[in-house]
Write a protein that binds this DNA or RNA. Structure first.
Lengths: 102, 102
DNA sequence: CTTATATTTCGATTATTCTGGAAATATAGA
DNA sequence: TCTATATTTCCAGAATAATCGAAATATAAG
């Protein structure tokens, strides 16, 4: 794992490490490949539009989601590969090997 | 998963989401159950002592490590259960169910 | 009791992030 | 074109985090 890759993982962890953003990401992931509209997120999470928009673009800047427009509606779609690479990092780079376990 | 638990996971993710702290944590995990001394971390990571100490206590405040004193030396030991609960959250609460996969 | 080593806490500065109202943009429909 | 809806961008203030030298604490050894 290169330094650049580690920094990409750190960036993703950092953006996930905010309660509102983690809640947003959870909803986006659960919406599956079709995604969830920004407005629907706003209904569920009761957070002002501009604040929500900032959090969404933070998650996008970490490669954790993308947006797709359909008419006036913008859908947020999870980038599952990025999520998997974060999980993979924690498992491979941070967890113990079997032989070290008690 | 309760709100309190989500906030605990968010806190852990946030603390891991800093390049220096992620590097610290990686070394601590790899040191296994015996842990690694603060001074050894400092040698590896070339960061001033006071800064390092702050980062270590951030990780401790997120429940990701504990410290054990042996004489003048303080060892940092990973809290593997906390790491596993973070990984578990990302897998269980955030990943797709099989039936949603393509 | 003095000195050396290991690490933390204090204190202060600088940098970054969070927040949300208001204005701007994009699209659709009448 | 005019209006309504959906969302973002602009702006600026408030809050939090990061940084690190210097001083303090803890322990060990002579």
């Amino acid at each position: 794992m290169t330094l650049v890759e580690i920094e990409a993982v750190a960036k993703a962890l950092k953006e996930l490490g905010h309660p509102t953003r983690l809640a947003i990401f959870q909803k986006v992931v659960r919406a599956g490949f079709q995604g969830i509209a920004v407005g629907q997120l706003q209904e569920h999470l009761a957070v002002p539009g501009s604040t929500l928009s900032h959090h969404i673009s933070s998650l996008a800047s970490a490669g954790l989601l993308t947006q797709r427009r359909e008419g006036r509606t913008l859908y947020c779609v999870a980038e599952f590969e990025q999520l998997e690479s974060v999980i993979g990092f924690l498992q491979d780079e941070c967890c113990l090997d079997e032989e070290k376990q008690p």
